[in-house]
Design a protein around this nucleic acid. Structure first.
Lengths: 217, 217
DNA sequence: ATATGGCCTTATGAATTCATAATTAGGATT
DNA sequence: AATCCTAATTATGAATTCATAAGGCCATAT
């Protein structure tokens, strides 16, 4: 059984533009050149402009009447607000995951956890952050709440461009590692309340945030 | 300084379609007739289709490739998930509002609270629910977290069509009233933690949800 | 009688065209 | 030389046109 191709043209275009923004090719505050992107993607303006409408709603660009789209600036305030919300969503995800997580998902998270530990020991920050990120996403998915998953993914998308550029202190590293240990333990015990508590305890993101805030705007 | 008029045509159209969905003119599961709506609104298909892309992203409609848009069904599962997330966001809003709320906002909420009480005493459910809703929205706004406000408003939008049709038990009413009393007290005391706790205590929404779930699907 | 297949109609997806607002360049004036 | 005003250019917003896929209808075969 082959899955039906769900992809739409404007969806593809939106994805490509998100990438351009995330990798910094389209700088914050700069205008989005419709014509040029059309040529680059080989599509007409119609699907591209449809994509821009969606991106505007997602918060990646802002539409100025008769002046087209600009890449949204990620201000410190916005970044802080986004993390506040994501943190709260993670806490909820933790609670729910504790009740609903499957064996497979748990095993997957444990595997990611050990990968993360090994990256930590080798001092490989990029890989560490990736595994870290994947663990958080996996917990959100394990909540089995589709609305939560959607909202979280969108917010995560928005801050993607600053996530992997942070320099973290050693203090933060060891702190985060120990919190992750507790998280996996809580998951094993199917203790949603504990997991939610850990995830909402502000520590992790607050420290991460202070590092990330320097990146923004 | 006059605020710049941000209205765009596709934005207007989106708003109109949201209304049509909320008031049931466009029934869940039915297709969205592009041509007919174009004539009705007096616009061409371009802005209407742009609006549909946004509405799809917001969760109001779903796009089937080469088969246009249909009004999304609000299933019980989706409704439950949406309330779970909203409840979590309200809890966060409560925490933040406790720290950040202004005198004016507090006074406004107190006024709404007394309005709500009077509607309660008169047994006017419609007005009661409206005031109730406005209090929750005001708390979210008082959080001063724009990301939170945006996400909350969108979710609230989605469930709008079932919000004011519920029949609530007397038990629920008195329970909810007493919880609201505590909320206002916590706000007066600027006790964000307490407020967050009250808002996340599941009771209100869980009961409300069970009434609402009968509406969905 | 029902199911299958081809034709015709209709609606969607995307490109193109058209109108208008914004930006730029150039010239006139101070 | 600097500034203001006007014309030309460009880009955006929206309508229209075009290509194609889906849905309906009828004829034919089983």
């Amino acid at each position: 059984m082959e899955k039906i191709r769900q992809n739409t043209l404007h969806g593809e275009v939106a994805e490509r533009i998100r990438d351009l923004i995330a990798q910094g090719t389209l700088a914050p505050g700069s205008r989005v050149p419709e014509k040029q992107l059309c040529e680059q993607f080989g599509v007409s303006r119609t699907p591209l402009r449809e994509a821009l409408k969606v991106l505007a709603y997602e918060g990646f660009v802002e539409l100025l009447p008769n002046r087209g789209a600009r890449v949204a600036k990620l201000t410190r305030a916005t970044l802080k607000n986004t993390f506040e919300v994501m943190q709260s969503l993670e806490a909820l995800a933790g609670e729910l995951a504790g009740e609903r997580i499957t064996e497979t998902e748990l095993a997957n998270i444990e595997a990611l956890h050990y990968q993360m530990l090994s990256h930590y020991k080798r001092g490989n920050m990029q890989e560490y952050l990736l595994a870290n990120q994947q663990i958080h996403e996996a917990i959100v998915v394990a909540s089995q709440n589709d609305v939560l998953i959607d909202v979280y993914k969108n917010l995560n998308h928005r801050v993607r461009r600053v996530r992997f550029t942070a320099e973290l202190s050693n203090d933060y590293w060891s702190q985060a590692i120990s919190e992750h240990e507790s998280m996996v333990e809580a998951l094993r015990a199917r203790d949603g309340a504990a997991l939610g508590g850990i995830l909402s305890r502000h520590l992790r993101n607050k420290v991460e945030m202070s590092a990330l805030e320097e990146m923004a705007e």
